[in-house]
């Protein structure tokens, strides 16, 4: 306990401390993807002696909006405050009509991406993506898509696929489930035509031959599953996760954080985390990351609107 007290004191006395003591906001409850990202990164920072300590604050709920609002309001100008976030937040902000949004925080770096997979139950007559597309074009209502929450990554991918093959995204018959797990039962039981979720979520079922993977959303072939692009559907979608800094920090402070995170991603500890969780590293720092987010907000916003969700 004394150590903590001293640390806090030294924080006030020496703002230019070589190893910063970070405060990390994780806008989700412990255990999920954001929590694993944040804690994995913090462990990497510590293993590389890049940060002297990291204090976590988990504040879950509403696709991260609650944590985001708190971060925006309470950490203004704090060069040592960071927050985990990702694509799910982009949709959540739009659907939840949130008063705060991602333009109010400072983009630091994109870290990981999880690709999405399109599956059918083993007994389904649909064998290939082309057959699915044909069915979709004939009668979009007859193809029910089971996946995660409305307006989430899975729903967005269904919309993007439809639009790419020339079907009105608003005609997609998407049936939201509480998450990949609940959707698995609906897919295996044949209650929906197609299933969409993160690659890892369905991996066991695909391996066991209970589901057939038709395509996945990375740029190229992955685990023997052809990508959408390879099959002539121009869609690429990764459920990305990244790090943000506090609102109103100086460019120097931001660059320091970008460097800190970049160094952390080069540690063996971080690589081991990625390996263990099966995440693809897609590092993108500073301004590039900022531009990427702007693009993504536009893309997600447009597709959510065309899905008929934004009221």
């Amino acid at each position: 306990m004394k150590k903590f007290a001293l640390l806090l004191l030294s924080l006030f006395a020496l703002p230019a401390l070589a190893q910063p003591s970070l405060k990390m906001m994780i806008p989700a409850n412990p255990g999920g993807g954001w929590d694993q990202t944040g804690r994995g990164l913090a462990a990497a920072m510590q293993s590389g002696k890049l940060a002297s300590s990291v204090q976590f604050e988990n504040k879950g709920g509403a696709a991260g909006i609650i944590g985001l609002a708190q971060f925006v309001n309470s950490s203004k100008g704090d060069p040592n405050a960071v927050m985990v976030g990702g694509m799910v937040m982009v949709g959540g902000i739009i659907l939840g009509k949130s008063a705060v949004n991602l333009s109010q925080v400072t983009p630091i770096a994109r870290l990981t991406s999880e690709w999405e997979v399109v599956v059918v139950p083993a007994a389904s007559p649909i064998k290939t993506m082309a057959e699915l597309v044909k069915l979709l074009k004939e009668n979009p209502g007859k193809v029910s898509w089971g996946g995660g929450s409305a307006g989430g990554t899975d729903h967005i991918l269904a919309g993007l696929i439809a639009r790419a093959v020339g079907v009105d995204a608003a005609k997609v018959n998407y049936v939201p489930y509480k998450g990949g797990g609940e959707a698995i039962a609906a897919i295996l039981g044949g209650h929906v035509t197609v299933g969409i979720s993160g690659v890892g979520e369905f991996a066991e079922q695909v391996k066991a031959g209970k589901m057939r993977a038709l395509a996945q959303s990375s740029p190229s072939k992955l685990d023997g599953i052809p990508s959408l692009k390879e099959q002539g559907i121009d869609v690429e979608l990764g459920n990305w996760r990244g790090i943000f800094g506090a609102p109103g920090i100086t460019p120097q402070q931001r660059d320091a954080l970008v460097k800190l995170v970049k160094d952390a991603t080069e540690t063996p500890a971080w690589k081991a985390t990625l390996e263990k969780l099966g995440w693809t590293p897609v590092f993108l720092g500073g301004d590039d990351y900022g531009r990427f987010i702007e693009e993504d907000i536009k893309r997600v916003g447009a597709i959510i609107e065309s899905l008929g969700l934004k009221k």
């Binding site: 150590k3 903590f4 007290a5």
Partner: peptide
Amino acid sequence: NLPAGWLAPILGTAGI
């Protein structure tokens, strides 16, 4: 995760 508040200098907070 519980807030230490005013007692943070004595109690510290959650972290690694």
